[in-house]
Amino acid sequence: MPEKCLETVDLRREYLNRSFFGKVKSRTVALQGLSISVNKGELYGIIGPNGAGKTTTIKILSTLLLPTSGTAMVLGMDVTKDLYRIRKRIGIVFGGERGLYNRVSGLQNLLYFSDLYGVPASVSRKRVPELIEMVGLSGRENERVEKYSRGMKQRLHIARALVHDPELLFLDEPTIGLDPAGSRNIRQIIKSLKQSGKSIILTTHYMFEADELCDRIAVVSKGNLVALDRPSGLKKQVKDITLVEIKVFGDPENLIERMKAESKVSRVFSEDLEGRTTIRIQTPEAPEVLEAARRTASEYGIKVIEASIKEPTLEDAYLRMVEE
């Protein structure tokens, strides 16, 4: 039986919006009884749409927010009681550019947080340069953070979360807003952290990222756990469908509407990019639907650049789960 580093049972969190006189005007339920369990050394992904409860979960687990009910144990300690000891042993990375002191250097940010974590100066003198090297900021560590690119700031965020060498890391959308090269850089760092034995909880919007990095993935929607499996297991859940992918030029509206009306089509998604539209059609009868799509495109004078049948991806599995 693998050793657990984190466990939540029936975790619930409500946000109350009160009037000036304290009367509850509205109630938002962010978590509706989430139960998850993460093994030591595991890279555990939490994916879900905006408002699914991912960040709320991370905040509760990192002691920044109290749950309304339920229990959350981190490294065997209660997040509502053992704040000091939990904080000593966890690290958290928030996505985005905010959350760093911009007027001082990256090095000064790291040294300050080393002090706040109570890291002895003899240790931080050795560890901080190593972290700067690890996240690829060598040579830039003495520059003010306000001069850093978004990717550099995100790498500094990671280094900051590691100044006290935590056992468990929370990464809350660490690649949000980064360009492909920056994202790949962060993913490499995450992989090396996992290899070094750290337990990692990762929230992300990017399915390929979760697929590439995570040992297991929890899909949350509206504050509930809707699926939990290895990436391959999640993909198997949509084995019954195949995908027809068509890339077209021109206004695809008529084509999309017609395909949605086809009886053998379960779902149609589209994405516009620089004048081209990629239409993904979920169907159990791919060859037949592919032909129908080509015919319809021709009828409406829409130029098809590419049309093929694809295996379902984690994103297809995810979309099906969060929409059900």
Partner: peptide, 13 residues
Amino acid sequence: WQGTLSSLLVTPA
């Protein structure tokens, strides 16, 4: 305003 409060309060300081 800088978004650093959460990072500070998650430390054991």
